[in-house]
Simulated assay, not measured.
Amino acid sequence: MRMFRNDYSEGAAPRIMDALVATNDEQCVGYTEGDPHCERARRLILDVCGLDEGEADVQFCVGGTSANVIGVTGMLRDWEGVICTRDAHINVHETGAVAACGRTVLPTDDADGFLSPEGAERVYAFQTSCGRHMTRPAAVYVTNATELGGVWDTARLDAICDWAHERGLRVFLDGARLASALTSEGNDVTLSHIAHTVDAFYLGGTKNGMLFGEAMVIRDERLREAFPFLVKERGGLVAKGRLLGVQFEAAFERGEGDAEAPYWSMARHANRMAADLRAGLVGLGFEPYGSSPSNQQFFVVSPAQQAAFEQAVGAETFYVLDDGRKVVRFVTSWATSRGDVDDLLEFAATIA
């Protein structure tokens, strides 16, 4: 069976690969500086974000961890830290990358993947209670979709952004799966709203049909100034930078007959496959963990079922519950077919 371990096990989607092949013999200047593909991709992204030229910078990163480290640390000074949820990628899955750069991660007690103003306020109040003797919060980090597949709505996003900006904190949004979030069922957040509300965010490519790459949109002046230097210093500058530009150019350029740009249609397809998988597993009696509308689906299973799913389709274990049962994750992508979903459901029926 096809793996459901993550959404980046495959190579590039056909439209992206065709663009890479078609431009393979071109000679371009390096490092995303001035080549026609990166420049066109920047203009396409600014346009879809509803931003004017000069209102924000569009910069390219090789992957999510690189984007998070450069983006977050570029907003902070030595004595400052970033507030996030306890399950945030920068706190759990990035090997202490932010801390390794001399910056402090300040987790809240939020347990659902969403950073709340209440949780953030508790951390902020504590960290500012002793003046210069404690790390001072200067930014918040949020993820859309969240680590548990949750999708932010406008009211919730505005609440945490308003809370942060009222205290002079910057907001950084991890958009590794932003395409899935914005095309999910019931989503009411627009890309333009994000672009005008947070201080910096990125459009994930690695997890949405590209070989690699993320496009960061930066309004924050401190990060705009720091990014060109940090991306080099922190090992994230790609010499063959046009490869990033070509992919994002192809992803955001609508072809003849396209209802929407491939970036959105690829994510919408992944979400549909995830919804079909969720409905099928629920129909077989499996217990969902949370209510993700994105391309990540979580289920509570027995240890024996977990082992079977891991061996069959690579499903990862995210949590072990107090009663010994496990929470496993299934992830769909642009390459997931209805036949792949049916194969998994047929297997799941044998262990239900």
Score class of each variant (00 low, 15 high):
residue 58 V to N: 04
residue 58 V to C: 08
residue 74 G to F: 03
residue 69 V to Q: 03
residue 62 V to W: 06
residue 83 I to L: 13
residue 55 E to M: 01
residue 56 A to Q: 09
residue 67 A to C: 13
residue 82 V to R: 05
residue 71 G to H: 04
residue 69 V to G: 01
residue 72 V to M: 02
residue 59 Q to T: 05
residue 60 F to D: 00
residue 73 T to F: 01
residue 76 L to S: 01
residue 75 M to N: 08
residue 53 E to H: 13
residue 74 G to M: 05
residue 61 C to Y: 10
residue 82 V to P: 05
residue 80 E to D: 10
residue 68 N to H: 12
residue 79 W to G: 13
residue 53 E to K: 13
residue 55 E to H: 07
residue 64 G to A: 12
residue 61 C to A: 15
residue 70 I to D: 00
residue 79 W to C: 10
residue 84 C to S: 14
residue 74 G to Y: 04
residue 81 G to E: 03
residue 76 L to F: 01
residue 52 D to K: 12
residue 84 C to Q: 11
residue 67 A to T: 05
residue 69 V to K: 02
residue 63 G to C: 13
residue 52 D to P: 03
residue 64 G to N: 14
residue 73 T to M: 00
residue 79 W to D: 15
residue 82 V to H: 08
residue 58 V to H: 01
residue 76 L to C: 04
residue 76 L to G: 01
residue 56 A to H: 07
residue 67 A to S: 14
residue 62 V to D: 09
residue 80 E to C: 11
residue 54 G to K: 11
residue 68 N to V: 11
residue 83 I to S: 12
residue 76 L to W: 00
residue 83 I to Q: 13
residue 60 F to T: 02
residue 54 G to R: 10
residue 66 S to E: 06
residue 53 E to Q: 15
residue 64 G to D: 13
residue 69 V to I: 11
residue 58 V to G: 08
residue 72 V to P: 01
residue 70 I to G: 00
residue 78 D to V: 06
residue 54 G to D: 12
residue 70 I to E: 00
residue 60 F to E: 01
residue 77 R to T: 12
residue 54 G to C: 07
residue 52 D to C: 06
residue 78 D to E: 14
residue 80 E to L: 07
residue 80 E to Y: 06
residue 73 T to E: 01
residue 66 S to F: 03
residue 71 G to I: 06
residue 62 V to Q: 14
residue 81 G to W: 03
residue 64 G to S: 13
residue 65 T to H: 13
residue 73 T to I: 00
residue 57 D to N: 09
residue 58 V to Q: 05
residue 70 I to F: 00
residue 64 G to K: 10
residue 67 A to M: 11
residue 52 D to F: 06
residue 65 T to Q: 15
residue 59 Q to F: 03
residue 72 V to L: 09
residue 53 E to Y: 14
residue 75 M to T: 04
residue 70 I to R: 00
residue 68 N to G: 12
residue 67 A to Q: 09
residue 70 I to Q: 00
residue 62 V to N: 08
residue 63 G to P: 05
residue 82 V to N: 03
residue 57 D to H: 09
residue 53 E to V: 15
residue 71 G to M: 04
residue 67 A to H: 06
residue 75 M to S: 09
residue 53 E to A: 15
residue 60 F to V: 03
residue 69 V to N: 02
residue 77 R to C: 08
residue 75 M to Q: 10
residue 57 D to W: 07
residue 83 I to G: 13
residue 84 C to D: 07
residue 73 T to D: 00
residue 75 M to I: 08
residue 75 M to E: 10
residue 64 G to V: 07
residue 78 D to T: 11
residue 66 S to D: 02
residue 78 D to F: 10
residue 59 Q to L: 04
residue 71 G to D: 07
residue 52 D to H: 07
residue 75 M to C: 11
residue 77 R to S: 11
residue 75 M to D: 10
residue 78 D to G: 14
residue 84 C to H: 11
residue 66 S to M: 12
residue 62 V to I: 15
residue 67 A to I: 02
residue 79 W to M: 10
residue 83 I to Y: 14
residue 57 D to I: 07
residue 82 V to A: 09
residue 58 V to T: 07
residue 65 T to R: 14
residue 61 C to M: 15
residue 65 T to I: 15
residue 80 E to S: 07
residue 64 G to E: 15
residue 56 A to E: 08
residue 73 T to Y: 00
residue 72 V to S: 02
residue 75 M to Y: 04
